[in-house]
């Protein structure tokens, strides 16, 4: 409400100005005070006196840390993370580095000058502080490009699933060219599509199948004692179901269905995760989307509902060391 009022006031004031100044076809000064104010990104090191006991005062960017291991064994965190790749996109990034909590960081002199452009349309001349305006323009364009490169590739693949996918739409008009689009297995049903009205739940079938297979194999022949050294399909399914509930995914992330994150975990006898590490540390450090998916997987293992895993106690030796591969393809 208050915002509305303020907004309205601002609007009206501008309207008055417009009227008073007799604006019009001619060049009219716009006032966008906010935009004109330079924002200076400074070293965050000094930002607080926070001491993060857990991690040594690494002056480096935080990002790198390959998914910190489970809470208990903080060692993982110590891993010398490479510089955070993502940050370097926009102007202000550089300062990021400073973020290490280490109080050691000296005063702000370091990045202070960061010309954080704030160019924007500030009609008002008072841009005083930052002299260099030139630098600003160049940035915008490049950014988008970079991102895409990384993201584009993913979507085309995906095999399975019913091919036509177009059927929902009215059959293509007479035009002879029947879009021979490949059977794009289009991504998930998680993506809304008003053209397809028929609800088709893909997920269910699979698990069932697996279960069946599992039971079949388990009961008969596989009754051999050695198999007790492995998790049955049913047992695996139980684990998968549990973790799937804890794992929050974002179906709109670019290339999400092609991202597969392996996490090596050590599980204690109490069935809690003692340690977890992302296997592909290089990609974790260089691919922001991969990192975010990996981190979401790590968070899943930290969730209350997944603190203690659904595993058969007696098969401890079979699951004490495990590699969990997170890939939301079935969701799609």
């Amino acid at each position: 409400m208050r915002h509305g009022l303020i907004l309205s006031a601002v609007l009206h004031v501008s309207a008055v100005l417009l009227a008073v100044l007799g604006v019009l076809p001619g060049p009219k000064p716009l006032e966008m005070p906010v935009q004109a104010i330079p924002i200076e990104v400074v070293d965050i090191g000094e930002i607080t006196n926070t001491r993060i006991d857990e991690k040594p005062p690494e002056p480096k960017p935080p990002a790198p840390r390959p998914a910190a291991a489970a809470p208990p064994p903080p060692p993982a965190a110590a891993a010398p993370p490479p510089p955070p790749p993502p940050p370097q996109q926009r102007a202000p990034d550089p300062p990021k580095l400073a973020e290490a909590p280490p109080p050691p960081r000296p005063p702000e002199p370091p990045k202070a000058p960061e010309p954080e452009p704030v160019p924007v349309k500030a009609p008002e001349p008072p841009k005083a502080p930052e002299p260099e305006r030139k630098p600003e323009p160049p940035k915008p364009p490049p950014e988008p490009k970079k991102e895409q490169v990384a993201q584009k590739p993913p979507e085309q693949k995906q095999p399975e699933q019913k091919p036509p996918e177009k059927k929902p739409e009215p059959k293509p008009e007479p035009k002879k060219e029947p879009p021979k689009k490949d059977p794009q297995p289009d991504f998930n049903q998680l993506l809304k599509d008003l053209t397809k009205k028929e609800p088709q739940k893909p997920a269910p079938p699979q698990p069932q199948k697996q279960t069946e297979v599992a039971e079949a194999s388990r009961t008969p022949e596989s009754s051999a004692p050695r198999l007790s050294d492995r998790l049955t399909m049913s047992e695996q399914d139980a684990l998968i179901a549990q973790i799937a509930q804890c794992w929050f995914i974002d179906p709109g992330k670019p290339g999400i269905s092609d991202i597969s994150v392996e996490i090596r975990v050590q599980i204690g006898r109490d069935r809690t995760v003692q340690r977890a590490d992302v296997v592909d540390k290089a990609r974790f450090a260089s691919d922001r989307v991969f990192r975010s998916v990996a981190e979401s997987a790590m968070r899943a293992l930290h969730k209350e509902e997944c603190k203690q895993l659904n595993l058969p106690q007696e098969k401890f030796d079979t699951w004490r060391d495990a590699v969990l591969t997170f890939n939301p393809r079935d969701v799609m």
Partner: peptide
């Protein structure tokens, strides 16, 4: 006009007429 606008500021709902 100015006065009218000032009044309008007080009346949130008056937006369109003020326009």
């Amino acid at each position: 006009k100015l006065l009218g606008l000032a009044a309008a500021v007080a009346l949130l709902a008056a937006c369109s007429s003020d326009q």
